[in-house]
């Protein structure tokens, strides 16, 4: 088994009284697309945010190439964030900047490239996600939901990351755009040879893009395996999730919205 790129070891994460993870372990292997599925408000995004140090665990370790992310100095963390791109659920495009400036943001931060070169790279990234160059001049507010997600994708690949984290990339999209985003994830995986972690509760997308699926259930990942293994799993919690059945324990447990930046180091 290859050395994991990202490794969670016995991670516990709490927000006040609410325990999101309890002694959770999970490994992300190089080159794979790992999909994290689970109910809403369960803490899937928290898992992604811990990977790049936006949130820090209360106990346990989060390792990137064997180095503890929460213990990294500022510069180390900056380098992790250069290598690990994050596609936010709503796109999180900067309202005050054009699409082109959004895409070039990481390049301006991490390189000493000229403006012309950054603009050229932004155009390449837009083409890669199926948008024409003219979009670069538009403001994010003028884009549709699907276009925003694709621009967010373009922004994430601009700096040629090793890993891309997708936080619910298909949420709020129509079936055509869901398919398009799924195809895009596969295309980027193929063309850029990146490792991907996708958080979703859209089962068709999960099945389409994943090498492995990890199912979040009761503060840990009791199931990690291929899509086929998941579909044929006899574990009741897996069957219930696939068929959309609500278990009694889940019904009585309220979903806690998590203020993600509450204990964030970066924000």
């Amino acid at each position: 088994m290859p050395e994991p790129i990202i490794d969670f070891r016995g991670v516990t994460k709490r927000f006040g009284e609410h325990v999101v993870y309890e002694r959770m372990s999970l490994s992300v292997l190089p080159g794979e697309t790992l999909t994290i599925i689970g109910g809403s408000g369960g803490g899937k995004s928290v898992c992604l945010k811990m990977m790049i140090g936006l949130l820090v665990p209360d106990e346990g370790q989060v390792l990137f190439h064997g180095t503890s992310v929460p213990d990294m100095p500022e510069e180390g963390l900056r380098q992790v964030r250069r290598k690990v791109a994050y596609v936010f659920q709503g796109g999180a495009l900067f309202d005050s900047m054009t699409v082109g400036e959004n895409i070039g943001y990481a390049l301006r931060e991490h390189t000493d490239w000229s403006m012309a070169r950054i603009e050229q790279r932004a155009s390449e990234c837009l083409t890669m996600v199926g948008l024409h160059e003219g979009v670069a001049e538009q403001m994010p507010a003028s884009l549709s939901g699907g276009m925003k997600k694709r621009v967010a994708l373009a922004r994430s690949i601009a700096i040629e990351p090793e890993v891309i984290l997708y936080d619910e990339p298909t949420t709020g999209l129509d079936p055509k755009n869901i398919k398009r985003i799924g195809d895009m994830i596969l295309k980027l995986q193929r063309e850029l040879d990146v490792t991907s972690v996708v958080v979703t509760h859209d089962m068709p997308t999960a099945r389409k893009v994943s090498n492995r699926i990890a199912m979040l259930y009761q503060r840990a990942f009791p199931f990690v395996g291929t899509a086929d293994e998941m579909w044929h799993s006899a574990a009741p919690e897996v069957r219930d999730f696939i068929h959309g059945r609500i278990r009694r324990a889940e019904q009585s447990a309220p979903a806690h919205p998590v203020d993600a930046a509450e204990d964030s180091r970066g924000a």
Binding site: L54, E74, A92
Partner: peptide, 15 residues
């Protein structure tokens, strides 16, 4: 903050 733009700045390696 609500639209995660502050998190996005941090995620892109800026402070």
């Amino acid at each position: 903050k609500v639209t995660e733009q502050i998190d996005a700045i941090a995620a892109l390696g800026a402070d």
